[in-house]
Computed example of a mutant assay.
Amino acid sequence: MNAAPGLRIHFHDEIQVTIVLAGVRAFRVLGQEIVLNAGQCIVFPARVPHQPLPTQSPTACLNAYLHPLQIGLGRRVL
């Protein structure tokens, strides 16, 4: 397990679910810093800008990316 790197602000076309498995992970979302501990999770709606912040301690996370149409959200075009 390594310290988590910081990344540039970005977004995804998919919904992002991040679960902190060990350590601490921090994000900047809509100008607010959110800190998650092991056992906590965060859901970023599609296209919402967010920025993972660097950590000093070892961190392990699981990220899942779900397309809104895969889970019945979003506008469907026929």
Rank of each mutant, 00 (worst) to 15 (best):
M1Q: 03
M1P: 06
A3M: 07
A3L: 01
A4L: 06
A4E: 06
A4F: 03
G6P: 09
G6R: 06
L7A: 11
R8H: 08
R8S: 14
R8F: 11
R8V: 13
I9F: 05
I9G: 09
H10C: 09
H10A: 04
F11P: 02
H12T: 09
D13K: 09
D13C: 00
E14F: 04
E14S: 08
E14L: 03
E14N: 14
I15Q: 04
Q16D: 09
Q16I: 13
T18C: 14
T18P: 04
V20P: 07
L21H: 12
L21C: 07
L21I: 15
L21Q: 09
A22E: 04
G23S: 10
G23T: 08
V24H: 09
A26H: 08
F27S: 05
L30F: 05
L30N: 13
L30D: 10
G31Y: 02
Q32V: 02
E33R: 10
I34N: 08
I34K: 10
I34P: 04
V35S: 12
V35R: 15
V35W: 09
V35A: 12
L36D: 07
A38F: 08
Q40Y: 06
Q40W: 10
C41E: 02
C41K: 05
C41M: 11
C41T: 08
I42D: 00
I42Q: 00
I42T: 03
V43G: 02
F44S: 00
F44V: 09
R47F: 01
R47G: 00
R47K: 07
V48R: 02
V48T: 15
V48D: 04
H50Q: 11
H50R: 14
Q51E: 15
Q51K: 12
P52G: 14
P52K: 14
L53I: 03
L53Y: 00
L53E: 04
P54I: 08
Q56T: 14
Q56V: 05
Q56K: 12
Q56N: 13
Q56M: 12
S57V: 05
S57D: 11
P58D: 07
T59F: 09
T59H: 03
A60P: 01
C61A: 12
C61I: 12
C61Q: 03
C61K: 04
L62R: 05
L62I: 15
L62E: 10
N63Y: 04
N63K: 12
N63M: 12
Y65P: 05
Y65H: 15
L66Y: 15
L66V: 15
L66H: 14
H67C: 00
H67L: 06
H67V: 00
P68F: 00
L69G: 10
L69N: 15
L69E: 15
L69I: 09
Q70S: 15
Q70L: 07
Q70A: 12
Q70M: 02
Q70H: 12
G72R: 01
G72F: 05
L73C: 02
G74D: 13
G74H: 07
R75T: 14
R75L: 12
R75K: 08
R75I: 14
R75S: 10
R76A: 13
V77Y: 00
V77F: 11
